[in-house]
Design a protein around this nucleic acid. Structure first.
Length: 436
RNA sequence: GCGGCAUUAGCUCAGUCGGUAGAGCACUGGAUUGUGAUUCCAGGUGUCACCGGUUCGAUCCCGGUAUGUCGCCCCA
């Protein structure tokens, strides 16, 4: 015993492991999401997790919280290149679309799923490595694609069996309209600066729209009388907004217009939307997106309209669990028990033969008594134990023991006849289930 | 980044008004020389998160750190 006891290395704060019991929820979620995306004609794209730092500064905006204090940025020590772990997916996706001229073929409907990184204080539903499914459509200018993306969300919540996710909608107008409103808003609050609380004063020049969001009751009157963005929207912007709403009304999808809904990233214009729930505490937004017509041009591509949204996988999975969703228990059809050298050799041959017939086999490894192996067979959830000992090995046979059917007894069969017998009994069991 | 709360066996938790600790489940073996889920029996040093302070003595009190959690900020 000369080994010294070293402190175990732990995962990085806010970057948790997703263990099997949890990961099975993720696979259930991802399966549902993939077939949902397929139903709307979206194709997969996979971008690197690391991008040049200037990409995010240009796309997201220099003065956003994300860029100012949440990005994992570093200098590649081998060549001095400034790099960043992606804090969101749209910038990289648009970069890839421009770089590979995908925009020539319009519209492009694309999706991706994977980890994003933001250096925030972790809590439930918010992590430093978190996961998003991103959906982007490039090349469509009209309100139809905005509306379709919103309808997509409603369908996914239904597919996932989720209730209580509500839609909030707003229009940010065009950049000039937004800028005019912002200037008026700042002037308005400056004129009433003595009424602002500390938070409000801090936000006045960083994020004046957020003042409208204040929970301070003393500010409600002041905020209610503040200039409203919608009054600054031009005819075209209003028509676009109404076009989106018309589709939602036709579809019978309820929504709330939230004039205070502003996205945290600078690239949005016109339609913005969020799907929110009150079941996740402080992190109520499970999906958010909107139109970003300026971004392609801003990143050096030939200007093209675009719209997209992203959903938080951790948050949605929390809701799925909350709603009682359960992934199917992963059980093999057969647990193969064996003891003795000849038996083990026959066991390998038998297991591969069963798999050839599409039967899932968990072959016992690690030795142990028949008793302990049978305990593992039961624990595995397998429908059958196949048992091979010295006696069976000598004759090329195996015991087939049903583990879930009280009435069925153990039978000794030729190894080559196992697959047919197992398939027959599995079919019988399914029919019995159906008749109940 | 700021504030509150938490951290005891693999899991869920109890406990010690400061004298180094327990239950249930899980796990392993046996009762049954080759057979599970039921029954019975046996099996626990676990750095009481980590580092330091107070104390004759700290898992318990105090301080710091780490991680989680709730809220704020912000966001998916």
């Amino acid at each position: 015993m000369s080994q010294t006891h070293q402190a175990a290395i732990q995962s990085v704060k806010g970057m948790p492991d997703i263990l099997p019991a949890e990961a099975e929820f993720w696979e259930l979620f991802e399966d549902t999401v993939r077939s949902w995306l397929k139903a709307y004609g979206y194709r997969p794209i996979r971008m690197p997790i690391v991008e040049p730092t200037p990409l995010f500064k240009r796309a997201i905006g220099e003065v956003t919280d994300i860029v100012e204090k949440e990005m994992y940025s570093f200098i590649d020590s081998l060549n001095g290149e400034p790099l960043t772990l992606r804090p969101e997916g749209t910038a990289g996706c648009v970069r890839a679309v421009i770089q590979h001229s995908l925009i020539a073929q319009q519209p492009q409907r694309l999706y991706y799923m994977g980890p994003m990184f933001r250096h925030e204080r972790p809590q439930k539903g918010r992590y430093r490595q978190f996961h998003q499914v991103g959906v982007e459509a490039l090349g469509c200018a009209g309100p139809d694609i905005d509306a379709e993306m919103i309808l997509m969300g409603a369908r996914l919540w239904a597919d996932l069996g989720l209730e209580g996710i509500e839609l909030q909608l707003n229009s940010l107008g065009q950049p000039d309209e937004r800028a005019r409103h912002r200037a008026e808003l700042i002037a308005y609050f400056e004129a009433h600066a003595e009424l602002l609380d500390e938070d409000g004063k801090r936000r006045l020049h960083t994020n004046p729209l957020r003042i409208l969001d204040s929970k301070n009751p003393a500010l409600q009157e002041l905020c209610a009388a503040a200039p409203k963005l919608i009054d600054y929207l031009g005819e075209a912007s209003l028509a676009h907004f109404e076009g989106v709403q018309r589709v939602l009304k036709d579809a019978g999808l309820p929504y709330t217009i939230n004039p205070r809904l502003v996205r945290g990233l600078d690239y949005y214009n016109l339609t913005v939307f969020e799907w929110v729930t009150d079941r996740l505490g402080a992190q109520g937004t499970v999906c958010a997106g909107g139109r970003y017509d300026g971004l392609v041009g801003q990143l050096g591509g030939k200007p093209a309209p675009a719209c997209g949204f992203a959903m938080g996988v951790e948050r949605l999975i929390a809701l799925i669990k909350d709603a009682g969703g359960e992934p199917a228990a992963p059980a093999p059809d057969v647990y193969l028990v064996h003891q003795g050298e000849a038996a083990t050799r026959l066991a390998f041959r038998t297991a591969e033969g069963l798999r050839d017939q599409g039967i899932d086999v968990l072959l016992h490894c690690g030795g142990g008594s028949f008793k302990s192996q049978m305990k593992k067979a039961d624990g595995s959830g397998a429908a059958f134990a196949v048992i091979i000992g010295d006696d069976e090995a000598a004759t090329g046979e195996a015991q087939l023991k049903p583990l879930r059917d009280e009435g069925a007894g153990q039978r000794k069969l030729k190894v080559d006849d196992l697959a047919a017998a197992i398939v027959d009994q599995l079919i019988d069991a399914n029919q019995a289930d159906d008749e109940e």
